[in-house]
Design a protein around this nucleic acid. Structure first.
Length: 558
RNA sequence: GCGCCUGUAGCUCAGGGGAUAGAGCAUCGGACUUCUAAUCCGAGUGCCGCAGGUUCGAUUCCUGCCAGGCGCGCCA
């Protein structure tokens, strides 16, 4: 159990007890207590914790909020735990805790170390997180980069919160687009010998296809002599495999590794689509119309029915996607989270319908929609034309601004924000870049600890020092900030808002930098020095923890 | 026409129904003989898109409108 929750639980209990005591003493008439909040106020003058219990109780208790608050405060014991309690504003109850709890925070950080802020909230529930899932027909783009950063950090957060998380990248290597890609590749192969060979009108124009063609011919000099259908089959398989390999490398260099790259073609090969069709047929969810086989998804809340088998006898992508989600469920996952781009929001209804038709609850599938990324250079939009094959790839973005900066930029915004990513800002003003601000705090602490070691001063533990010496405002603020991480992790996890952690990292770094200018560590009298060494060491642990959740490096020197 | 997202300081964005709406950048002014000045301290700026509604209380929730981005295939 972590410290912030323990404090809150305790206060929660004290408030409930105060209500019943107040009723018993006749200060309040009995009423049903509504949900109320205990929060860390923005303004430190409002205490360490504040509650709106009197405000939300006003109606049921039929008293003015401030009257309710006054009645409750009379019954809240002040002593070793609570130093002071007061009524403020429209009827808030502000709690000022005694110094002791600050020590509890440092002890918790020291004890839990790199796992600080972890919990068992998820109780081992199996969650499958699917993200990126770009088609294997080209390089990853910047929205993919955003999805990768968000999905990866969400996975790290959910693991920290006690979920058993699997991450997967679904590879559409069996559909129409893979065929178009194969035809493009074949044409580029022919063009090596015959520059006039026609290129498919809907083909993929990027130079990478030509590069791939050259590589193919080097590996298979006999390729052009193969029968056409064999060329197509080879290109579809070999070509998409190459693209997957390429995408996986780019993602690995970006700090993102998937537990599984799931191939659509495996679903086909193993008859998983037929399985789903048979199951739906048996349940009576299918009907035929105009030569196609339809899924009555409207019976499960979708806005229109969906074709599963086209009139030409081929499956639609929906069928494969249903089979894939069916497979996830059969592997024991009880929660499926898909992170998609904004162009796929229409997909939510049909897939939620499918999961319900497969016999699972409405909330089993959760779809998070990311918004677009607009790349800017010098404040002006970067021109991107998919048709002309001109777009900034994830690789180029990362090469230009670095993995740490790229991940931080993406993770510092909420999912639904339409993100303006100014590359020149991220590069040219690198010293002003927020990610360096956080990393610099880490490097500064490392420097202090290095120098302490050089003069033979070891970092003590909380048990060795007098923590009450940490009483300067800058010190107290820093300790309180450390205490906030566990709650932030849990909120970021449950609300699926990883950007909270990036914000927290900036906050913590800022609080530390302020401490650094106001308080020296080395050179102080031994008792103060030692207490501060304990403090900065705890900050180091929490900064590392935070950066590791974000997938960003923690350099020891800058 | 229908659906999703967005509209908050000059710019980029935070704000889980609460107290005087915040941060960074940009602008201006201070602080390095002392653990890294990639830092710190201070200053100014807001019809929270508009109009209603719910509430003791709305930037937050609901409805309608306005503006911008993106979708609405037997493509994926």
């Amino acid at each position: 159990m972590d410290i912030a929750f323990a404090q809150r639980e305790k206060l929660h209990g004290l408030i409930l007890k105060a209500i019943s005591d107040a009723v018993e003493a006749g200060d309040l008439t009995s009423y049903e207590v509504p949900e109320f909040v205990l929060e860390v106020p923005k303004d430190p003058n409002h205490g360490d914790f504040a509650s709106n219990v009197a405000l939300v109780s006003a109606k049921a208790a039929r008293r003015a909020p401030r009257d309710v608050a006054e009645a409750l405060v009379k019954h809240i014991p002040v002593g070793t735990f609570i130093a002071k309690v007061e009524v403020a504003g429209p009827g808030f109850i502000n709690f000022f805790l005694s110094q002791e709890w600050l020590g509890d925070i440092l002890r918790a950080v020291e004890m839990q170390g790199e796992n600080y802020g972890a919990s068992n909230y998820g109780q081992g529930e199996k969650v499958l997180l699917e993200f990126v899932s770009a088609n294997p027909v080209g390089p990853l783009n910047v929205v993919n980069a955003r999805a990768a950063a968000v999905g990866d950090t969400l996975a790290r957060l959910m693991r920290a919160s006690g979920y058993q998380v699997g991450t997967e990248f679904y590879v559409n290597d069996a559909g129409n687009q893979a065929d178009v890609f194969a035809r493009s590749l074949i044409a580029r192969c022919h063009q090596q010998a015959d520059p006039d060979y026609p290129f498919p009108e809907d083909g993929y124009p990027g130079d990478y296809v030509t590069d791939l063609a050259k590589q193919l011919l080097a590996e298979r000099p006999d390729f052009l002599e193969l029968p056409e259908d064999e060329q197509a089959a080879f290109c579809k398989r070999w070509g998409t495999d190459q693209m997957v390999k390429w995408q996986a490398e780019d993602l690995r260099d970006y700090g993102v590794e998937f537990d599984l790259w799931f191939r659509e073609r495996d679903l086909h090969a193993q008859g998983k689509l037929e399985e789903v069709i048979a199951f739906f047929r048996e349940k009576g969810y299918l009907y035929e119309e105009e030569g196609a086989l339809w899924f009555r998804s409207t019976a499960f809340g979708d806005d229109k029915d969906r074709v599963l088998i086209k009139s030409d006898g081929l499956y639609t992508y929906v069928t494969a996607d249903i089979a894939y989600h069916h497979d996830k469920l059969k592997r024991g996952y009880t929660k499926l989270i898909d992170i998609l781009g904004p162009d796929h929001h229409g997909y939510i209804g049909r897939m939620k319908a499918a999961v319900q038709a497969l016999g699972h609850g409405e909330d089993t599938l959760e779809v998070l929609i990311l918004q677009y990324v607009a790349l800017l250079r010098d404040g002006k939009p970067v021109k991107m034309s998919k048709r002309a094959g001109e777009f900034i790839t994830m690789r180029e973005l990362v090469d230009e601004v670095g993995t740490d900066a790229a991940r931080f930029f993406f993770l510092n915004r909420s999912l639904e924000s339409h993100l303006d990513f100014d590359m020149s800002l991220a590069v040219e003003q690198s010293s002003e870049n927020p990610v360096f601000y956080v990393q610099y705090a880490h490097a500064r602490i490392c420097s202090i600890l290095r120098q302490a070691e050089e003069v033979g001063v070891a970092v003590p533990t909380t048990a060795d020092v007098d923590l009450s010496l940490l009483s300067e405002e800058a010190e107290v603020n820093l300790i309180k900030k450390l205490g906030e991480l566990p709650e932030e992790i849990l909120l970021a996890t449950t609300l699926r808002e990883p950007h909270r952690i990036a914000r927290y990292a900036l906050d913590l770094a800022s609080t530390f930098h302020s401490f650094y200018t106001h308080c020296h560590v080395l050179g102080e009298e031994a008792p103060v020095r030692d207490a501060r060494l304990v403090l900065v060491n705890c900050v180091l642990i929490v900064l590392r923890r935070t950066l590791s959740l974000l997938g960003i490096s923690a350099p020891e020197q800058m």
